[in-house]
C-alpha cells in the first residue's frame, strides 16, 4: 500500500518536532506522588468541614443558639462564625488551588515551590483552627463566669484567679489534644511531601 509507505516516510521525519524533556523534568514527572498527597490534603480539609455540618444537620440544631443568646453573645456568635466560615472556605480554596497547580506542572522548580506553599498553608490552617478554638472558649468562659446564675451558685470565698487558671489549663490541654489530632492526620501527609521535596532537590543537584 503506497499510502502507508508515504505515511511511514513522514512518520520517521517527525522526531525533531517533539519537545525534548531534560532528565530533571523527567524525574519530576515520575514523582507524581506529590499531587496525590496534595489531593488528600484537599479532601481531608473538605471532610473536616463537611462532616460536623452533616452531623448537626441530621441530629437537628442543638441548643447552641439559645446558649449564646442567654449569655448575650448572639452578635459575637454571628461575627465569629462569619469569620470562621470565610477563612475556612478560603483555606479549602487554597488547598484546591495547590492541588490543581501541582498536578498540572512538570517543572521541578514550580513543583518544589508548590510543595513548600502547601506545607505553609496546612500550618496556617492548623494554627487558625486552634486559635479560633482557644479564643471562643475564653470568651464563653468569661461570659459564663459573669452570669448571675453562676455568681449566685459560687461560694463567696472562692478565688476566681484559681478557677481561671484551672480552666486555662483544661483549655490548653484540649488545644494540645486537637493539635496532636491534626499532627496525626496532616503530619503523615506533610512528611511524605517533605520526603518528595528532598528527593527533588537531590535530583536537581545531580542533573
Amino acid at each position: 500500500m503506497d499510502q502507508l509507505e508515504l505515511l511511514k516516510k513522514d512518520w520517521q521525519k517527525q522526531d525533531s518536532t517533539f519537545p525534548k524533556l531534560s532528565k530533571s523534568e523527567l524525574s519530576t514527572l515520575i514523582h507524581k506522588k506529590s499531587s496525590s498527597i496534595v489531593k488528600w490534603l484537599f479532601i481531608i480539609s473538605l471532610l473536616e468541614f463537611v462532616i460536623p455540618h452533616l452531623i448537626i444537620l441530621f441530629t437537628g440544631d442543638n441548643d447552641s443558639t439559645k446558649i449564646y443568646e442567654d449569655l448575650g453573645l448572639t452578635s459575637f456568635k454571628v461575627i465569629s462564625f462569619t469569620v470562621y466560615y470565610i477563612v475556612i472556605l478560603f483555606f479549602i480554596y487554597l488547598f484546591y488551588k495547590n492541588y490543581k497547580s501541582i498536578s498540572a506542572n512538570s517543572n521541578p522548580k514550580i513543583l518544589m515551590q508548590n510543595i513548600i506553599q502547601t506545607r505553609e498553608v496546612v500550618k496556617y490552617y492548623i494554627w487558625f483552627n486552634l486559635t479560633m478554638f482557644f479564643v471562643i472558649s475564653i470568651v464563653i468562659l468569661y461570659k459564663v463566669f459573669n452570669t448571675p446564675l453562676f455568681i449566685d451558685k459560687i461560694p463567696e470565698d472562692v478565688n476566681m484567679t484559681i478557677v481561671w487558671l484551672v480552666c486555662l489549663v483544661v483549655i490548653a490541654l484540649l488545644v494540645v489534644m486537637f493539635w496532636l489530632f491534626y499532627r496525626l492526620i496532616y503530619g503523615v501527609l506533610l512528611n511524605k511531601l517533605k520526603e518528595n521535596y528532598k528527593e527533588l532537590i537531590n535530583n536537581n543537584i545531580d542533573c
Binding site: 522526531d15 525534548k20 524533556l21 531534560s22 532528565k23 523527567l26 524525574s27 515520575i30 542533573c207
Partner: peptide, 9 residues
Amino acid sequence: VSDLEQNQN
C-alpha cells in the same frame, strides 16, 4: 531517567 531521556521520542 537517562534511558527514558534517550528514548522519549
